[in-house]
């Protein structure tokens, strides 16, 4: 699903050159649920932005669903992002002026679906997260947990193959966090590949695989399978 080979990401200012990712190699198979952990400033967000086609790489190769993204135009990248990737953010990032229906509608609009198709998909997505009765509500009228469920509905509406979650439970209380995690696990069971950035080791343990990024490099590789833990401490491991 996702193959990153020898990726480098360098932020350059007039005086400073910062290597956010160095020779970064990672492969995520279709249907996997991968948790990404690491200390602040380690490069998790850069990895997520690159994986989500929101930032360009300085060098290396990145293949998403078998297609290399190197050299693609902004329009092509946007189309790829729209069709293949769903985003879930810690701060929900719902558009405050739009109601729930309109928020979920956003990615579908750029996809060019007909009115009828969009309506079906939006209603189904909101139903999946249990919010079909509140379609006309504004985000500000919902709790944090409900807003995150709307964000998940929005990410799912276009039926992407790949879901990127950035601290999806970071702003939620433990009960809400549990509900959201269960939702993500269900989504994963239905075949969607999920890469989740988190600080919470408990959440990370619920993923099939845990990777750790330190100083822009992949440094830990753990597979959790039915309570069995396998550790591989080789840096830059490729699954």
């Amino acid at each position: 699903m996702l193959v990153m080979s020898g990726i480098n990401k360098v932020y350059q200012t007039e005086q400073v050159q910062t290597h956010a990712l160095r020779e970064f190699n990672l492969s995520v198979a279709e249907g996997e649920f991968v948790a990404v952990t690491g200390p602040s400033g380690s490069g998790k967000t850069t990895f997520l932005n690159i994986a989500g086609l929101l930032e360009n790489i300085s060098s290396g190769d990145y293949q998403l669903d078998g297609q290399s993204i190197v050299g693609l135009s902004d329009r092509e990248l946007s189309r790829l992002r729209n069709e293949k990737i769903g985003f879930i953010f810690q701060g929900f990032n719902l558009i405050p002026d739009l109601n729930l229906y309109e928020n979920v509608d956003v990615p579908l609009r750029y996809r060019g679906f007909s009115n009828k198709e969009r309506k079906q998909k939006i209603e189904h997505a909101l139903e999946t997260v249990g919010l079909s009765a509140r379609m006309k509500h504004l985000p500000s009228q919902l709790s944090g947990g409900q807003q995150q469920r709307v964000a998940i509905a929005r990410a799912l509406a276009g039926e992407p193959k790949f879901l990127l979650a950035d601290e999806p439970t970071g702003n939620l209380d433990s009960l809400m966090a549990k509900q959201v995690m269960e939702l993500l696990e269900n989504i994963n069971k239905q075949g969607t590949t999920i890469v989740m950035v988190t600080h919470d080791p408990e959440l990370a343990r619920r993923a099939q695989r845990n990777i750790q990024i330190v100083d822009g490099q992949l440094c830990d590789f753990t597979i959790y399978q039915g309570g069995t833990v396998n550790n591989d401490t080789d840096k830059n491991a490729v699954a």
């Binding site: 989500g52 929101l54 902004d74 329009r75 946007s78 992002r81 069709e83 990032n93 558009i95 750029y110």
Partner: peptide, 16 residues
């Protein structure tokens, strides 16, 4: 701009 960022993440191109 934050809303624009969200739209871009959800698939809007610069042109759109």
């Amino acid at each position: 701009a934050p809303s624009v960022g969200v739209r871009r993440a959800l698939g809007a191109s610069k042109g759109q």
